[in-house]
Nucleic acid binder design. Structure first.
Length: 827
RNA sequence: GCGAGAGUGGCGGAACUGGUAGACGCACUAGACUUAGGAUCUAGCGCACUAUGUGUGUGGGGGUUCAACUCCCCCCUCUCGCACCA
C-alpha cells in the first residue's frame, strides 16, 4: 500500500472544500417563515492579530452545533464579525506608527483567513466590524433614543481611573482593584461622565434570570449577586441642633432599638457641616484625608482595620428618642445605601468590632428563639434572626414580623420607608480615548447639552479614513471639537468621550440579522424571525460584564420598539479555557500553542476533532500534543476503512432483512444504530462531543476489526456503517467527511444531508449480561436472552457454579433481582 | 469570610433516574509485519498479594441501602466569583 492511500491528504482536501464553500456559499441564509430557525452564535473576537486556541475551541464548538442543527432541518444562522474598537489598536498604533484603523482592518483580514482555514460554516455575508461607521452610527442613534428616554445622563462622580490606559473604567471592569485589561492599579478620580441607567432595569434583570433555564446556574448566580438587591428600611435620624437629618439604610430594622452609635462614610456630604467650627473639626478632617489616601493605596485583599473618629455631633433615634453619637468610619461605603449606617454592635460583627475598639456600648435586642433575656457578655455579634427584647412595643416579636412592623411604624410616623438597594451601579460608558464610537453630543454655552441631530449621524471618528490621520484622544483634536450648535447655530464644542466598547458588543447579535439595513439599527422583519439567539457560546469570563450589558440592552431595545424579545440568549454554553501544563496559555509562560502551526501540521479537521474530544466543552481543556496525534490517527483509520471498502458504496442495497444476516453483520448493524443513538443523545443533552466521538470510535474500531479479520460483512451493513460514520462526524470534521462522501459516489454535498435516525429495533441487544453478586460483590456473569424473566434469572444465578461456591450450604437470606441488570444474593 | 463548582489509573476523561468503576483516547509493555517506522495490526495495562485466584479501590472519615463515584452528615484540597453591600 502506498503512502498516499494510507493517509489522507488534508492540505489538498481542506483547500478544495474551503474553495467550494467560498464559491457556493452554502451557509448563506435568508428568512424562511416555513422553516424553524436556529441562531448559533459564538462571542465575536477582538481583532488582536491572530486567533488563539481559545478561539479555535469556541468556534469549533459553535460550528459543530450549527452544522448539526442544519442536518436536523433547521434554518441556521451562524454569523461572525469583529469587536473592533478598543485600546490595543491605539497602543499598537503608537508603537508601530500606523493608524489604529489600518492596524485593525489588517488584523481582521488576517484573522478572517485563519477562521476560513478552520472550515467554519459562517454566513460571511453578515460579517460586520463594530469600528465601521455603518455599525456605530446606529449605536449613536440608540444612544440618542436612550437620551430621550432619560436612560442616559451625565454626572460628576468619583470614577475608576486607569493611568496606564488613560481612561475611566466601569465598576465591573475593575478586577481586584486593577484594570481588567492591563492589570494596573486603578485610582479614584472625580470626573464628568456619561452613564446608562442600568439600575432602572435592575428588578427586571433580576427577575428574568429565572427565565434563563438554558444558562449555567453559576452564571445566573453571579449575575444575581452582582445585582445584589436587598430590601429593608430607610430611616431618618434627626441631627441634634440642626435641621439636617441622617438617612440610613438597614436590612435589619428589627435591631433598631439596639443602635448605640452612627457610622458615616468619610465622603459623606454632612461631614463638613457636622464638624465645622467645632473642637472636633481638625481631628475629623485629618482622619478623612488619611482614610481617603489609604483607600486609594489599599491593595486588594487587605481588609483595612476598622477606624473611626467621633464627630462631636449627635442624632436622635426616632424609635427611642435616645441621643446617638455620630462617628466617621473608614469601613462605611459612600457608594452603597446612603453612606450612613446605624450601628448595632450586638448584632453586626463590624459594628461589634468597632464598639469594642472604641469602648462603645453593646445593647442586645435580639435573643435566640427560646431565650428571653440577654446573655451576659457577647464574644461576637449575634447576627441570626431571633426574638426581640427591650424593643418597646415590638418586644417578643420574632425578627421577621418585627421587620415588617417596624417598617410600617416608620412609614406611619413619617420617619422612614420601605427601601430597596442594589449593589449594581449605573453603567459609566465614557472613555477618554480615540478608538471608540464618539458620543453624539454637542456642548453649547447657551443651549447646554445638545444631541447631534439624527440626520447628522454618524459622528465619524476623525482621521479614521486616512492612514495618516490623527489618532490622538478626541479631547486633543481641536478640528473635531469645534462645531456649531444645532439649536442656536453659535460656535459650540463636541463631546470628546467615546463609548465603552462593551456598548458595541451589547447589540451586535441583533445587527447580524440585518447588517446592511439602512433605515435604522434593526430591521423588524429580520429580528422578528431570527432573534433571540438560540445558543450562545463563549468564555465564562464574560459572565457578568458582557452578558449583563447585553441583557440590559435587549430590554432597552425592546422598550425603544426595535426588538420584540426580553432576553437575548436563550441558551448559554460557557466553555472552559484551553490550558497547557495545567496553566493558562500565555506568552509570559511560554506555553502558547499557535493554531496556525497545528493546522499546517495536522489539518483543521484534526485540530477540531482533538479540541472536541479532549474534554467536555464546559471544562478546561488540557492541550496535549500526543493527543492530537491520536485524533489524526483516528481520521486516517476512518479514511482507510472507507477507501478499502469503496466498492460497497457502488451498488449495495439498504439493509432490509435482518434475519438473513450473519452474526457479525448483525452485530455491526446493531452497533451502527446504537452509535447513532448515543451520538445524538450526547449532542442533544449537553453538547458532550467527547463522548459522541468515543462512540463513533467504538463503531469504527468494530468495523475495522471485522474487516481485518476478513469477516464477510454484508455489503449493505458495511455501507450503512461507513455512511453513518461520515454523517455523524460531518459536523466535527467537515472537509474530511465531504471528501469521502464525494469519493464514495454521492451526488450531493453533505451540507444538504440529513442527520441519521436510529432504528430502535435494530439497536436492541438480544442477549444481555446479568451480573450476579453475593453480598454485593460480583461473583459471576450470566449471558441471557434480553427478555428472560426474573424467576428464571434467580434460578440461573443460584445454579451458577461460581455462585454456589460462595453461598455454600446455607439458605440465602434475601435475593434481589433487578430487571435486565443483576441478581444480588444476600447470605 | 460568603457563594458556586470540582476532586475517579501514569495522563485527558467515561459511568443513564443508586445496580459490571475505569468506555474512548494518550502514554507505556510485549509481539507481528517491515529496508525502515513518529505507519499499521495483535495482546496486555488501577493497586496489592500467598496471581488461571483473592483482596482492595472513585480526596479523607462516618452514615443510609441487598447494593454508593452516584444519596445524607463532617472534614481536607483545588478552581472560579464576590469581598467591609449595612
Amino acid at each position: 500500500m502506498s503512502e498516499s492511500s494510507n493517509k489522507y491528504d488534508f492540505t489538498t482536501i481542506e483547500a478544495k472544500w474551503q474553495q467550494h464553500w467560498e464559491a457556493a456559499r452554502p451557509y448563506k441564509v435568508t428568512v424562511d417563515s416555513d422553516r424553524k430557525k436556529y441562531y448559533v452564535l459564538e462571542m465575536f473576537p477582538y481583532p488582536s492579530g491572530r486567533i488563539h486556541m481559545g478561539h479555535v475551541r469556541n468556534y469549533t464548538i459553535g460550528d459543530v452545533i450549527a452544522r448539526y442543527k442544519r442536518m436536523r432541518g433547521f434554518n441556521v444562522i451562524h454569523p461572525m464579525g469583529w469587536d473592533a474598537f478598543g485600546l490595543p489598536a491605539e497602543n499598537a498604533a503608537l508603537k508601530r506608527g500606523i493608524h489604529p484603523a489600518a492596524w485593525t482592518y489588517d488584523n481582521i483580514a488576517y484573522m478572517r483567513d485563519q477562521l476560513k482555514a478552520m472550515g467554519l460554516s459562517y454566513d460571511w455575508d453578515r460579517e460586520l466590524a463594530t469600528c465601521d461607521p455603518s455599525y456605530y452610527r446606529w449605536e449613536q442613534l440608540i444612544f440618542l433614543k436612550m437620551l430621550e428616554q432619560d436612560l442616559v445622563y451625565r454626572k460628576e462622580t468619583t470614577v475608576n481611573w486607569c493611568d496606564s490606559c488613560a481612561t475611566v473604567l466601569a465598576r465591573e471592569q475593575v478586577i481586584d482593584g486593577c484594570c481588567w485589561r492591563c492589570d494596573e492599579q486603578v485610582t479614584p478620580r472625580i470626573m464628568h461622565g456619561w452613564f446608562f441607567r442600568i439600575t432602572e432595569y435592575a428588578d427586571e434583570l433580576l427577575a428574568d434570570l429565572e427565565t434563563l433555564k438554558g444558562w449555567p446556574d453559576k452564571v445566573v448566580t453571579m449575575q444575581r449577586n452582582w445585582i445584589g438587591r436587598s430590601h429593608g428600611l430607610s430611616c431618618d435620624f434627626p441631627i441634634e441642633g440642626s435641621h439636617e437629618k441622617l438617612t440610613i439604610f438597614t436590612t435589619r430594622p428589627d435591631t433598631i432599638f439596639g443602635v448605640t452609635f452612627m457610622s458615616i462614610a468619610v465622603e459623606h456630604p454632612l461631614v463638613d457641616t457636622l464638624v465645622a467650627g467645632t473642637e472636633f473639626e481638625q481631628e475629623v478632617r485629618d482622619f478623612v484625608r488619611k482614610t481617603i489616601a489609604e483607600k486609594q493605596r489599599k491593595s486588594v485583599d487587605e481588609e483595612l482595620e476598622k477606624h473611626g473618629v467621633f464627630t462631636g455631633a449627635y442624632c436622635v433615634n426616632p424609635f427611642t428618642s435616645e441621643r446617638i453619637p455620630i462617628y466617621v468610619a473608614n469601613f462605611v461605603l459612600m457608594e452603597y445605601g446612603s453612606g450612613a449606617v446605624m450601628a448595632v454592635p450586638a448584632h453586626d460583627q463590624r459594628d461589634f468590632e468597632f464598639a469594642r475598639k472604641y469602648d462603645l456600648p453593646v445593647r442586645q435586642v435580639i435573643v435566640p428563639p427560646g431565650h428571653d433575656t440577654a446573655s451576659d457578655a457577647l464574644e461576637e455579634a449575634y447576627t441570626e434572626p431571633g426574638v426581640l427584647i427591650d424593643s418597646g412595643e415590638f418586644s417578643r416579636m420574632d425578627s421577621e414580623a418585627a421587620k415588617l412592623a417596624i417598617i410600617n411604624h416608620a412609614r406611619d410616623h413619617g420617619i422612614g420607608r420601605r427601601a430597596t438597594t442594589y449593589r449594581l451601579r449605573d453603567w459609566g460608558i465614557s472613555r477618554q480615548r480615540y478608538w471608540g464610537a464618539p458620543i453624539p453630543i454637542i456642548h453649547c454655552a447657551d443651549c447646554g447639552i445638545v444631541p447631534v441631530p439624527e440626520k447628522d449621524l454618524p459622528v465619524v471618528l476623525p482621521g479614521s479614513d486616512d492612514p495618516n490621520g490623527s489618532h490622538a484622544p478626541l479631547h486633543q483634536q481641536e478640528d473635531f471639537i469645534r462645531t456649531t450648535c444645532p439649536t442656536c447655530g453659535r460656535p459650540a464644542r463636541r463631546e470628546t468621550d467615546t463609548m465603552d466598547t462593551f456598548v458595541e458588543s451589547s447589540w451586535y447579535f441583533a445587527r447580524y440579522t440585518c447588517p446592511d439595513f439602512m433605515d435604522g439599527p434593526l430591521d423588524p422583519d429580520q429580528t422578528g424571525y431570527w432573534l433571540p439567539v438560540d445558543q450562545y457560546i463563549g468564555g465564562v469570563e464574560h459572565a457578568i460584564l458582557h452578558l449583563l450589558y447585553s441583557r440590559f440592552f435587549t430590554k432597552v431595545l425592546r422598550d425603544l420598539g426595535y426588538v420584540a424579545i426580553d432576553e437575548p440568549f436563550k441558551n448559554l454554553l460557557t466553555q472552559g479555557m484551553v490550558i497547557k501544563e495545567g496553566r493558562k496559555m500565555s506568552k509570559s509562560k511560554g506555553n502558547v500553542v499557535d493554531p496556525n502551526d497545528l493546522i499546517q501540521r495536522y489539518g483543521a479537521d484534526t485540530v477540531r476533532l482533538f479540541s472536541l474530544f479532549a474534554a467536555p466543552p464546559e471544562r478546561d481543556l488540557e492541550w496535549n500534543a500526543q493527543g492530537v496525534d491520536g485524533a489524526s490517527r483516528f481520521l486516517n483509520k476512518v479514511y482507510r476503512l472507507v477507501q478499502a471498502n469503496k466498492t460497497v458504496f457502488a451498488g449495495a442495497p439498504t439493509v432490509q432483512n435482518l434475519d438473513g444476516l450473519d452474526t457479525y453483520s448483525r452485530n455491526l448493524h446493531r452497533k451502527t444504530h446504537q452509535t447513532i443513538k448515543r451520538v445524538t443523545g450526547s449532542i442533544e443533552t449537553n453538547f458532550h462531543f467527547n463522548t459522541a466521538i468515543s462512540a463513533v470510535m467504538e463503531l469504527v474500531n468494530m468495523a475495522a476489526g471485522l474487516v481485518n479479520e476478513n469477516r464477510n460483512i454484508d455489503p449493505a451493513v458495511l455501507r450503512e456503517c461507513c455512511e453513518t460514520t461520515l454523517l455523524l462526524l460531518f459536523p466535527m470534521v467537515p472537509h474530511f467527511c465531504e471528501e469521502l462522501w464525494q469519493q464514495t459516489g454521492h451526488n450531493h454535498t453533505m451540507d444538504t444531508a440529513q442527520w441519521p435516525t436510529f432504528d430502535a429495533e435494530a439497536a436492541r441487544e438480544n442477549s444481555i449480561t446479568i451480573i450476579v453478586q453475593v453480598n454485593g460483590k460480583v461473583r459471576s456473569r450470566l449471558e441471557v436472552d434480553s427478555d428472560t424473566d426474573n424467576e428464571t434469572l434467580e434460578r440461573l444465578a443460584l445454579a451458577d457454579e461460581r455462585v454456589m461456591k460462595f453461598i455454600g450450604a446455607g439458605k440465602p437470606k434475601k435475593i434481589i433481582v433487578v430487571q435486565k441488570k443483576l441478581v444480588n444474593i444476600v447470605i
